[in-house]
Design a protein around this nucleic acid. Structure first.
Lengths: 130, 130
DNA sequence: CTCGGTGCAAACGTTTTGCAGAGCA
DNA sequence: TGCTCTGCAAAACGTTTGCACCGAG
């Protein structure tokens, strides 16, 4: 890997992901930082989110239909997504590493991790649907 | 929902997904059907895959980095993806519906289902990496 | 001074959409 | 005949990349 220098922009992008309660998209991070950093470009946001994910400082979460999201919490944890409004939140359940071993034995894959995503309706959308 | 008519094209697209061992992309379905249906267009494939998924006849699987994949198996089951070559296969583990209830209780979401994706190296890529 | 970071804009791959015509009920 | 489905092409969308300049070390 290339040796990375310290850069104010990357630090700001990192903090924007860390400090945000939701799991922001690249576009969202861009809009958050644009006021304080008028020269910022979207390409830089994408580049740095990619670098940060590669370094293991943040995680990239693929979102079904729509833009990728990023997560400042790198501990194993799961997510719940509202199928109506797309809201994505953390779920704290114990990570069952035994499942990885079990799948590794039956599939022949060298399993490194697994992701769990719950899907349903968030409280707001659940009310509307009734 | 709009009342759907029967269409040969949609039926053919449905069968292409069902009869295929892997989890095909829209592009792949298109290439499979093009020889027998020279007038077929990619837009029609996308439209019909969307309709079939909406009707619950197939499932849409979001694939991290790359094109969406479709799955003719609508029974709850999980997937394993090779992080190197992107191969996606089924994993048969018992579906734990209790987890849904547990998450519903702690998050307030009305949970309908959950998805599990294992990630690692497939046997071929595992060999290369050694 | 060197080499990584940045802004800008163009390009990319995937998916969606507007339209006019074909086809099912 | 109604309204859906289709092909086509253009456009939308999220993301990546080439380039020239800026800036950290």
């Amino acid at each position: 890997m290339v040796v990375r220098r310290q850069s104010r922009m990357r630090q700001a992008i990192y903090e924007a992901v860390l400090n945000h309660p939701v799991h922001p998209t690249a576009e969202y991070v861009y809009e958050q930082l644009k006021p304080q950093h008028p020269s910022l470009s979207l390409g830089t946001v994408y580049r740095n989110l990619g670098i940060l994910a590669e370094q293991g400082l943040i995680r990239k979460i693929e979102s079904q239909s729509g833009a990728d999201r990023f997560d400042g919490n790198v501990e194993p944890h799961f997510h719940v997504r509202c199928r109506e409004c797309g809201r994505l939140e953390d779920v704290f359940l114990s990570y069952d590493g035994q499942m990885d071993a079990q799948v590794q034995a039956t599939t022949g894959y060298r399993i490194e991790e697994h992701f769990v995503t719950f899907s349903g309706l968030c409280p707001q959308c659940g009310k509307k649907e009734k």
